[in-house]
Design a protein around this nucleic acid. Structure first.
Length: 641
RNA sequence: GCCAGAUUAGCUCAGUCGGUAGAGCGGCUGUUUCGUAAUCAGCAGGUCGCGGGUUCGAGUCCCGUGUCUGGCUCCA
């Protein structure tokens, strides 16, 4: 047979000579496509576009515009960087160098020389110089013995270790220019499409992710086929920097940290507290509508509580250590989660099936000893408040409760101005039933309930097997912000373990004791983390109903302050809140300062407005909206809420 | 916790070869009473993160340590 059948994604079948490459197929379709093709999926596996196809195959060509194309491109860029490093730092050793979501990295060991950020431009230059050589990426199958010989000769113990895990017969090398690497591939045809490079940063990374092993230097980089795309990407990063919640949090006086109070312990300032409490009140009201009952539990709990829950055995050593009292033998732990307290609430008196589902909610402040290097603004802290609740129910009720939580979360997220909202469902690893507690029937029922519930609310989901907790399946919420970055919010988890450990029971209609199922849910994770995401998503321009100050009254002269007072009082009667800027500053200055504080409405008051009983309205970020009656403003304002 | 970098006035930053500290913004005082993004002037702010060391002399060099930043590992 001299010809093979190639099936394209549209289902059409074309015939090509045996040994044809994806590149040649692209050429037969169009020159333009051939110029842009980076790799191809052949029978479900991503291949080099230059690799011969030796049998009937399905084929999908990849360009810069798809995920696989970018991944190939960036992985090849990592090799290009390695070539540049080898030219500049002879003797450098290489770990692994994969593509990531935005670019690639390569872990390197430069021996006694330490790389510094000042070295990066030099490496970038070398990469561009090498890219211009238009070197092809050449794939070569090698025997294990030859491969070992090559890297032994080179003295790269990392590659040798990687080789140990590979089987003879499936080892390939890729070479471009003067650089040869152990690599499964695939790679782009040649280096000429790499037109712009930026090495982002340097970081330490453990060899094979093991903190007991040597730390290598990880160099992060990104490349693009057009220099304009690099410029755009760097602008996006600039924008992200401007929106950094740590920066905005300080500028807008929302929160602070103090070395004396302790790292990772946020202090909420008046404006931030207003924002947070308003958000909390909104969430509380919505949850009460859905049948949640709010409780308050102490910030510490006896060690016994956590021994019972099992958390002490699992996390005790890595937590804030017990608080000891003057009387010996008393030990308390800072509350790291609210569930044990809520279990005690359920168990404090006999429960009837008629009370289920029992939904116990709490804005519960918890303390966790996060490693110091993990702390980050408000998104990773040591003291935070969960929008927590525990639902005690029957297995039959799990689906309804999931629906309830999904709908609540969707509604709140939309109200907050996010529109891209997805979920990850984590189920058992079907091959390892011994890893999980709880009966087979209960697991099946709960997993089915979660999947059905997400279908009913029409939510985009991904399902991952083996990611469930040992005590039950779970669902994690994800949102994308205005810059397209993904954030993980909170979770809903089914738990068969804690009711067991706390011996929780209810009396069923059959007059027998039954064990309830417990659902943990904190859809937003924590107030701290959620607000950090909200700050970055909105760039500090919070939704009107939520923002601390909704307007600023800006009198042109201090003789107009009394009129401002009357306007403020009138707006207050309509629950519109704000302040008067009474400073002896020019109106231009007051407007500038108020714009920077992201106060949504600026009401400029001069003699004309005072005479006519009107206000001149300016919207933050939009400019002058003209003069209007106060009642018209209230109408406009209320419509925007 | 680990690797790398940073740490100077409230903030953003400058500070040369080691010779005793500087700007802008902000603050205060005065001035300006103004029409849609900074009125003008003066003044006050610093144990150069902290603790040691080298030196006649340390913001600057060395050691230790705190905190922050970027990653790694971790995240009930």
């Amino acid at each position: 047979m001299n010809t093979i059948n190639i099936t394209l994604p549209d289902g059409s079948v074309r015939q090509y000579p045996h040994g044809v490459t994806s590149m040649q197929i692209a050429q037969s379709i169009s020159e333009g496509l051939a110029r842009n093709v980076l790799s191809a999926t052949v029978n479900g596996e991503v291949w080099d576009a230059t690799r011969p196809i030796n049998g009937d195959a399905s084929l999908k060509l990849h360009t810069w515009n798809d995920k696989e194309g970018k991944a190939t491109y960036w992985h090849s860029s990592a090799h290009l960087m390695a070539e540049a490093l080898e030219a500049l730092f002879p003797g450098v050793k290489f770990g692994i160098g994969p593509a990531i979501d935005n670019g690639y990295y390569y872990d390197v060991d430069t021996g006694d020389t330490t790389l510094t950020p000042a070295d990066l431009p030099r490496i970038e230059e070398k990469m561009m110089e090498l890219a211009k050589n238009k070197n092809s990426y050449i794939r070569r199958e090698v025997s294990k013995a030859d491969a070992i010989a090559y890297f032994t000769d080179k003295g790269d113990e990392y590659k040798l270790e990687l080789l140990e895990g590979l089987e003879d017969g499936q080892i390939t090398f890729y070479t471009q220019g003067n650089f040869t690497d152990l690599c499964r591939g695939p790679h782009i045809p040649d280096t000429s499409s790499i037109k712009a490079v930026k090495l982002m940063n340097l970081a330490g990374a453990y060899w094979r992710g093991d903190e007991k092993r040597k730390q290598m230097t990880r160099i992060y980089g990104i490349t693009f086929p057009k220099s304009k795309e690099l410029t755009d990407y760097l602008e996006l990063l600039e924008e992200a920097k401007k929106r950094d919640h740590r920066k905005l949090g300080a500028e807008l006086e929302l929160f602070m940290f103090s070395d004396k109070v302790g790292q990772g312990l946020p202090i909420w300032l008046p404006k931030g507290t207003q924002l947070r409490e308003r958000l909390q009140n909104f969430l509380r009201a919505e949850q009460e509508k859905l049948g949640y009952q709010m409780v308050v539990t102490p910030h510490i709990g006896s060690k016994t509580l956590y021994v019972t829950s099992g958390h002490y055995a699992k996390y005790g050593a890595d937590s804030f250590q017990p608080i000891h009292t003057p009387k010996e033998g008393e030990e308390f732990l800072l509350k790291p989660m609210n569930c044990p307290h809520h279990c005690e609430i359920f168990g404090h008196r006999p429960r009837s099936y008629k009370e289920l589902p029992l939904r116990i909610g709490e804005f519960g402040t918890v303390y966790r000893y996060e490693q110091s290097g993990e702390l980050h603004g408000l998104s990773r802290v040591r003291g935070f408040t969960q929008d927590d609740a525990h639902i005690f129910c029957t297995v039959e009720q799990v689906k309804g409760e999931f629906l309830n939580v999904l709908e609540l979360t969707q509604m709140v997220i939309r109200k907050m101005g996010f529109d891209n909202f997805t979920a990850q469902i984590s189920l058992r690893d079907p091959g390892k039933p011994e890893k999980y507690i709880g009966s087979e029937e209960n697991w099946n029922a709960a997993e089915a309930a979660i999947i059905e519930a997400t279908k009913e609310v029409d939510m985009e989901t991904t399902t991952v097997l083996g990611e469930a907790a040992f005590y039950g399946p779970k669902l994690d919420f994800m949102i994308k912000d205005a810059l397209g970055r993904s954030w993980q919010l909170g979770t809903i988890q089914v738990d068969y373990n804690l009711p067991e450990r706390f011996g929780l029971e209810y009396i069923g209609s059959d007059n027998q004791a039954h064990r309830p199922v417990m659902i943990h849910r904190a859809p937003f994770g924590s107030m701290e983390r959620f607000i950090s995401i909200l700050i970055e998503h909105t760039a500090g321009k919070f939704p009107l109903w939520l923002t601390p100050d909704q307007f600023a009254l800006l009198p042109i002269s201090d003789r107009l302050v009394p009129y401002c007072e009357s306007v403020k009082a009138e707006l207050a009667r309509h629950d519109i809140r704000g302040f008067i800027d009474e400073r002896a500053e020019s109106i231009g200055r007051k407007i500038r300062d108020t714009e920077l504080k992201r106060v949504p409405y600026m009401l400029i008051i001069g003699d004309k407005e005072a005479e006519n009983g009107q206000i001149s309205v300016r919207r933050q970020g939009q400019g002058d909206l003209g003069t209007m009656d106060i009642s018209d403003f209230i109408t406009r304002f209320t419509a925007e809420l």
